[in-house]
Amino acid sequence: MDYKYIEQLVERYWDAATTPEEEQILRLFFRQSDIPQPLLRYKDLFDYEAAERSIGLGSDFDRKVLAAVVPATPVVVKARRRSWAESLRPLYQAAAAVAVVVLVGIGAQRSFQKDGAAWDYNPASYNDTYDNPQQAYKVLEDGLEMFQRTASADTVQADKQVVSQ
């Protein structure tokens, strides 16, 4: 890795010419454990700054200062007005969640049932869909026509694509 950029940043840091963002890059860089040898000498400086950043006051201080402030600030519970639609919102959410679970359950159950019933390929056990042969012939003819239309439309589209390319 090329560390020239970091070296330049360090140099600019000493000259107070770095931006806060560049200084943040330096902090992050020197937080690593494996710093290249020429830059290692600056690690202590940035370690020191990081350690100083973690200095603070504990919860004892909070108790002490809050005790001095609390008489002036009684805890006020602010009541907010909510419309009936807003207050029923959790109910809608619960109902929606239940509906989703039920619908998914029904769907899953149906699909499992379908999968469970094996296909019967024996022509002897086929049942006629239509009683009237003419009606059956008409339905078959319509189906074949539709198939032909779709197939020819696909062919025309494919030809157009070839031509345009």
Binding site: E52, R53, I55, G56, L57, D62, V65, L66
Partner: peptide, 18 residues
């Protein structure tokens, strides 16, 4: 608000005062 606006500044103030 004391708890939400002022108290969270305590550490930064402490470091400067220190």
């Amino acid at each position: 608000d004391f708890r939400t606006d002022l108290l969270p500044l305590k550490d930064q103030l402490f470091r400067l005062a220190l």
